[in-house]
Design a binder for these strands. Structure first.
Length: 481
RNA sequence: GGCCCCAUCGUCUAGCGGCCUAGGACGUCGGGCUUUCAUCCCGAAAAUCACCGGUUCGAUUCCGGUUGGGGUCACCA
């Protein structure tokens, strides 16, 4: 046998924006492709005209771009390949491997009702599998439409060696009866379109979510019936919520969709690292959790992907993101968060250098980039509340008043151009008044920034400048009264 | 309910028969460094390796069962 080309695909459906689980399997696919010098293909599974939306397709494409996942082929759209599905349906039909089923929805519902009452598994009973010509004619004369079903072999164990789970076996009798592969309006159904495409595109490895395990058992006979070679499968564990159920677009849209992470300013490298590391550790040094995708390509093995589902944990994601944010230069951080800053703040108030100083002072505390505005907002306006409990407590002491008044009268001797000088002046004032530490700094902090925590005080004073320091301290003193 | 999958600290995991009185990371708590917060550094608590039987001189590691959790059972994908 000649060496088969390594070809993998990711096949999202535009019935929603890009799902976190899809992204994770995409990363695993990507890693495997790169390691084996294969081709990566993007296919959009848009056969469900009811639920598809163009904007989702756009979001999916943009999502992959943002994540720096690129494809060698595609995107292919299933909606543009209906002729192909039709052709293969006819092939199966002519070979007697598929048949017309004239059942109405009502008949199917009735069947299910009976099965449920009898407490037997609900499945199609293949009743139209061997219709006579007369019966068919009669149905057609009644004006009934027909779908096309695939003849699933009876009572056969479908076995495959899963790259992640090991050997898996499902009996065809537990697959729900002969599956519909094409509707009366010639729209192909998922399990059929997938097999036609995977076969036609010569996909060598199908790495997909665990929830497809039974679909795989359904699809293998289809590959064989169609005359395609069966790809190698690998089923990656699902992502769970803390409630231990699978992360779904509908129920957990707030965390399941990738655009959230894009919008809130997570770094793609952090997301990739977190998602991959969730179920995979490097073999050379498992304790090394921080890695970029490109660093682990050679180390990657599907077999090291954990079999059990992993619970999504935001704090851990934050830790990864914080790590990568700290690796950024101030300028990179500025560029990446510029749209947040421009939206929330009047940037013209400060020079770029001053902005860089602000960012440099708070960068190491960021879990995600959109937190940045909130942390430096006080530089831009004094709309913070001095009357809240903690602020009020800090300001309403006799010492606070002495400090603030002293600063007001010392405005002329402060060298605002240098943070260190600013700090030194404050310390000198402290010495004069016999105050230091919190007693000295907190009232000033609160008066200038509305909080007793934040960046270096000297930096705050320096960047704020004489006028703002003056007005804010006056305002604070007024509150004391 | 049928079928299938899974099972180590709260969470993610290392472990592939003796190195394990189970290691790392996040989180939590305590301490140090800082005027404060964050970062950083140090330390602690945290898993009778779900349970019960085997196999073995020896099981977290192998086998079987039980329990628990999950997935899936469409003319959705």
């Amino acid at each position: 046998m000649s060496q088969k080309e390594i070809r993998l695909r990711i096949a999202p459906s535009p019935t929603g924006s890009l799902h976190l689980g899809t992204v994770r399997t995409a990363f695993y696919n990507y890693l495997f492709v790169k390691k084996n010098k294969g081709k990566f293909i993007l296919r959009i599974e848009d056969t469900d005209q009811q639920r598809n939306k163009d904007e989702y397709t756009k979001e999916i494409l943009e999502g992959f771009k943002w994540l720096k996942i690129s494809f060698d082929e595609g995107p292919y759209f299933q909606s543009e390949r209906f002729d192909l599905y039709k052709k293969f349906t006819n092939k199966l039909l002519s070979e007697g491997k598929a048949y017309h089923c004239f059942c109405t929805q009502e008949e199917l519902d009735e069947l299910r009702k009976i099965q449920r009452a009898a407490k037997v598994p609900e499945k199609y009973d293949n009743r139209h599998r061997n219709l006579t010509e007369e019966q068919k004619k009669s149905f057609i004369e009644q004006g009934r439409k027909s779908v096309i079903r695939f003849k699933l072999p009876d009572n056969v164990d479908i076995k495959w060696n899963d790259e992640i789970r090991g050997s898996v076996c499902v009996n065809t009798n537990d697959l729900g009866g002969d599956p519909v592969i094409m509707r009366a309006d010639s729209v192909p159904l998922y399990n059929f379109a997938v097999v036609v495409d995977d076969g036609d595109m010569r996909i060598s490895h199908v790495i997909r979510g665990d929830d497809h395990l039974h679909n795989t058992a359904k699809q293998i006979p289809l590959f064989e019936a169609l005359g395609f070679s069966v790809p190698i499968f690998g089923h990656v564990p699902l992502i769970f919520t803390h409630d231990r159920e699978k992360l779904s677009k509908r129920k957990h849209g707030d965390i399941a969709n990738i655009d959230k992470y894009q919008r809130e300013g997570f770094l793609p490298d952090a997301l990739a690292n977190y998602l991959v590391h969730m179920s995979w550790t490097r073999p050379d040094k498992p304790e090394a959790e921080i890695f970029k995708l490109d660093e682990i390509i050679d180390l990657f093995e599907l077999g090291r992907i954990s079999k059990s589902s992993a619970v999504y944990d935001l704090p851990k994601l934050y830790w990864f993101d914080n790590h990568y944010i700290k690796e950024l230069s101030v300028e990179e951080t500025y560029n990446l968060s510029k749209h947040f800053l421009e939206k929330d703040l009047n940037l013209s108030l400060y020079s770029k250098e001053q902005l860089f100083q602000m960012i440099g002072a708070i960068q190491s505390g960021l879990n995600k980039l959109d937190e940045i505005s909130g942390l430096i907002k006080f530089f831009f306006d004094d709309k913070f509340d001095l009357n809240t409990g903690e602020n009020k407590n800090t300001l309403s002491t006799e010492n606070a008043r002495r400090i603030l008044e002293k600063i007001l009268s010392s405005l002329e001797i402060i060298n605002f151009s240098d943070p260190h000088d600013c700090k030194k002046t404050i310390d000198n004032i402290g010495k004069e008044l016999g105050l230091k530490g919190k007693d000295l700094y907190w009232p000033i902090r609160v008066a200038l920034s509305g909080s007793n925590k934040g960046p270096d005080l000297g930096l705050i004073i320096s960047l704020l400048g004489k006028e703002k320091v003056k007005s804010r301290i006056e305002k604070a003193i007024a509150v004391l009264v």
